[in-house]
Amino acid sequence: MPPADAPLVAARGLARRYGPVHALRGVDLDLHPGDVLLLLGPNGAGKSTLLRSLAGLLRPQAGSVMVAGRRLSGDDPDARRPIGLLSHQSLLYDELTLLENLVLAGRLYDLPDPRARAETVLARQALLERKDDRPRQLSRGMQQRAAIARALMHDPTLLLLDEPFTGLDAVAGDRLRALLGELRTAERAMVIVTHHASEAWDLATRVGVLVGGRWGYLGPRPADLAAFHLTYQEVARG
């Protein structure tokens, strides 16, 4: 049992190379319940690599990730249980209906009544009437909501979001911001990767800027977004 003040996520010395390119160079990160980290950085800075490492989808070549006191590895499936991921892709099978997709996820997470839970999360995303549709029959905004429903099926305490606003129109973007606001609880930590700080600035409690696989900046969210832009540009230039 980890101590009460233990971080929900403790990443130490994460390093990952793709051939000659260093995507991560010894990255440390602590996230406590209630933290919302806005993860920024130029293209190729290592944001998605860090996010996939935190999700346990990418094995770092050095370092480790602990989530809720358990080390992420292929050998300990339960270490992944607290994690929810909203990626560029929906993680949904096109040949299954929304309900079937979510019930499958519920079974894999050992939920006691996957169908009831699936209907609850679909209703929350205003998709219950489309439960028998397949993902490809939905609009981009609806697909994003379906992906969110899948990510929330098991009520994760660590929510990782990789550019969640990409491809959404203004209305859908506002709806997603409102939902993320509701999901920001004292028990849950979130990491939001984005290219545009303004998209999730108000949600964040902390801001991190990765540059060349290292932290260029990691700290509490500054009060003034405009002033932070100057800091960001300095950091991003190295």
Partner: peptide, 16 residues
Amino acid sequence: RENGAFDGLLLAPVSR
């Protein structure tokens, strides 16, 4: 590979 669905399986608390 469709919609990155395999990531969903790898992410679940399911043994390899």
